[in-house]
Structures are given as structure tokens and as C-alpha cells.
């Protein structure tokens, strides 16, 4: 089993509700895993999920794309073998990459090894932290079935994010990746990330009224 999140880049509108709900769910004051010591002054603080705004082209032929970027829970996660204490590990039962804060020494070697820059160093506790795929939610059997999914998936207003098992060919995420040619980031670095993105469809052709009239006239004559 490999749990993952698929993001449809056509549906993502860059509202950052996933970014904020991640922070909200994982921050419980001073003792939450995501530190939030100066929330009103520290916009460059720790975020386990960051939505990038990516701009392409020049006006008027320009487009904007939003890319939520968190831990990719890679099949061959490069952060795992480099860890000297075994604090970084990948669970065999569901493929989620996690950090044991009690064993972490804060050497940050895993941050160098991660190609995606999604691990963050907590200087107050001296350990590295990152997205847990909301493991506390997805394994909480007291929650209703439909709520056992990451906070970012549940909060997405456009349903751009889908959560599921990538190793199950019948799952929704597997079907989306297969049917919509889902892609991963930096595949050349060999980490085999499980998180996929569904590519933006090309923009529809814009046809002017003059063009329509010209075609209609031609068909009539």
C-alpha cells in the first residue's frame, strides 16, 4: 500500500486553504508539531505544505498555475537511508514517510537529501519536521470514515486533491494518474515520489466573431 495525494492543477485555484488547514490541524499552541511562535510576524515560518504560484508566458498570453508542495512520500525516499539514527523512516504498511522526533539529532542531512525542499528544521526543538500525511487522522478509528483523510484534502473547496492508495489499480488516485497522465516533480533525481499532479489542459482556442461569421458565410455560399 502506498498512500498518496493527487492534485488536479486544473482545479487548484491557489486559495491556500490546504496550506492553512495543514497549519491549523498540526499546530496546537506551543506543543503542536508545527511551531507557530510568532504567527503574526513570521510569514516565513514553518509550513509543511506550501502553495507555489507559478507564472508562465508574457501578457496578454500569460497563465498562472498553483502548485501545492508538501512531502512526496517517495517510494525510494532519499531522506530515509541518509539518516544516521533511523529517525526518518518509511512505513511498510502504508508507505508514509515519517520522522521519530525522539531519535532525530537535528543534523539536517535529510533536508539536503530531499530533492523537494519539503523538510523543515525546528530550531526550537532541534529536530526536522515535515508533512505526516495527517497520520493521526487517517488512522483514527474514532473519526467517521469520510474524515479519515489529510486536512489539506478535506479542506480543498474545489476538490482538487484526492487521497488514496496508489498501489491499488482500482483506487481513484491510480485511475486519475493513469487516465490523466499524472506526473511527478523532478523525476530525474530517482526518488520516485508517490505524490502526483494532473497536468493542466491546454487553453481552449479563442475564436473571434469575425472568424465565425466568415466560416458561416463560406458554408452558406
Amino acid at each position: 500500500m502506498q498512500l498518496t495525494i493527487i492534485t488536479d492543477l486544473n482545479k487548484c485555484v491557489g486559495c491556500k486553504s490546504c496550506q492553512v488547514s495543514c497549519k491549523e490541524h498540526n499546530t496546537s499552541g506551543e506543543f503542536g508539531p508545527v511551531p507557530d511562535h510568532e504567527p503574526y510576524r513570521e510569514v516565513d515560518g514553518m509550513w509543511w505544505n506550501r502553495v507555489l504560484s507559478v507564472e508562465a508566458g508574457e501578457y496578454p498570453e500569460a497563465s498562472v498555475m498553483y502548485l501545492p508542495k508538501a512531502c512526496m512520500h517517495c517510494y525510494d525516499a532519499p531522506c530515509v537511508p541518509v539518516c544516521p539514527t533511523g529517525a526518518s523512516y518509511k512505513r511498510a504498511d502504508n508507505g508514509v514517510v515519517l520522522i521519530d522526533y525522539d531519535a532525530c539529532i537535528g543534523c539536517q542531512l535529510c533536508m539536503w537529501a530531499c530533492p523537494y525542499g519539503v523538510r523543515e528544521f525546528d530550531e526550537h526543538e532541534g529536530v526536522v519536521k515535515k508533512c505526516t500525511l495527517c497520520i493521526d487522522r487517517i488512522e483514527d478509528e474514532t473519526l467517521p470514515e469520510h474524515e479519515r483523510q489529510p486536512a489539506c484534502v478535506q479542506s480543498c473547496p474545489t476538490h482538487a486533491r484526492t487521497f488514496g492508495d496508489l498501489d491499488d489499480p482500482a483506487s481513484e488516485v491510480s485511475k486519475l494518474v493513469a487516465q490523466r497522465q499524472g506526473f511527478t516533480l523532478l523525476p530525474e533525481l530517482g526518488a520516485r515520489p508517490s505524490v502526483h499532479y494532473l497536468p493542466k489542459r491546454p487553453m481552449p482556442h479563442s475564436i473571434s466573431n469575425n472568424e465565425i461569421e466568415r466560416v458561416l458565410e463560406a458554408s452558406e455560399s
Binding site: V82, C83, A103, I105, Q108
Partner: peptide
């Protein structure tokens, strides 16, 4: 370089894979 010395006792755990170990 270690920011959390409490974990230092585990530093030789991953000799099989970790160059830091």
C-alpha cells in the same frame, strides 16, 4: 552540529545505509 544531543546514542544505528553513521 547535532541540535538534539538526546538522540546521539542512536547515531551508529544505520551503518548499513547512512554515510553519516
Amino acid at each position: 552540529h547535532m541540535h538534539r544531543l538526546a538522540g546521539a546514542k542512536y547515531v551508529l544505528r544505520q551503518l548499513k545505509t547512512s554515510w553519516l553513521s
